[in-house]
Structures are given as C-alpha cells and as structure tokens.
Amino acid sequence: MNAVICDVDVSWTDDDFTDFFIINYKYHPVYQYTLDGQEYRVVSRVEYSKKDEIKVGSYEVLFVDEKNPRYFSCPSENRERVISALIWSVLGVAFALFPLVG
C-alpha cells in the first residue's frame, strides 16, 4: 500500500551524566494511508537523529496488517536497520579479533 510521510514526530531524552543538561532529540516519520475507507496516521518506530533525514511529502510502500491496520512494515526502514546491524557486527568482530591478530 502507498503511504505518504505527512509529518515528523519529535521525542527527546535528557542525559544528565555531568553538570550539563543535554537533550537528545529523535525524529520519527508519521505515515498517512487509507485502508477500507478509513484514514490512518501512524508514527514509525524508526528513529532518526536529524529531522532533515525525513522527507515530508514523499511516498513509501508499506505492508499493512489488515487485522490491525495500525501495524505495518516499511521495507525501506527495514533495509536501513539491516545495513546498520551489519556495520556494527563487522566492527564488533574486528575488535574481537584485533587482540588475536596483533
């Protein structure tokens, strides 16, 4: 199903590790789509560190669960998670093998 990114949801956390108060913002795309005549606006679970990474007005393909229309899967978001996981895995293996090689 085609969905449009209609908005950006902002959440934040505060890190108080030092005497300074640091706020970390996280940005989530908000998808809008229509299923069986009913319109849905759903916030994605995927987080971005920069608002500019989310292109409001762009279209994405979503796989929506017909029994629970608020549950969806976005192939482009899944691809980004897999790439990130692979990069961190390679780095983890490299650091684990470094003492053995050196």
Rank of each mutant, 00 (worst) to 15 (best):
K26S: 09
G92Q: 10
I87Q: 13
C74Y: 00
S73E: 11
L91N: 03
V4L: 03
K50H: 13
D15I: 08
N78F: 02
H28G: 02
D7H: 06
L91K: 14
S84Y: 09
V42K: 12
I83E: 07
I54R: 01
N68C: 07
V93W: 11
K50T: 11
D52W: 03
S58I: 02
Y59H: 14
V93I: 15
V10C: 04
Y71I: 12
I5E: 02
F20K: 14
Y59V: 14
P29E: 04
G102T: 14
V43S: 08
C74F: 04
V82P: 05
F72L: 06
C74E: 03
E39C: 11
A96G: 05
Y48P: 04
E60L: 13
E60Y: 10
V93Y: 12
P99Y: 05
P69M: 06
Q38P: 00
E53S: 09
I83Q: 07
N68T: 04
E47D: 15
Y33N: 04
L91H: 07
S49P: 00
P99R: 05
Y33S: 01
V43D: 05
I54C: 05
S76T: 11
I5N: 02
V30C: 03
S58W: 07
E47G: 11
V8C: 06
D52Y: 07
D15E: 12
N24D: 09
Q32V: 05
A85P: 06
V61K: 08
V8G: 01
I23G: 02
F95E: 14
P69H: 08
R81C: 10
L100F: 15
D14P: 00
Y27K: 00
Y48H: 15
F72N: 04
V56L: 04
P75M: 01
K67W: 11
G102N: 15
T34H: 08
V30N: 00
S89I: 13
S76V: 09
R45V: 09
V4Y: 08
Y27M: 00
S89A: 14
V93D: 05
D14W: 04
V4G: 00
C6M: 02
R70N: 12
F63G: 10
E39F: 03
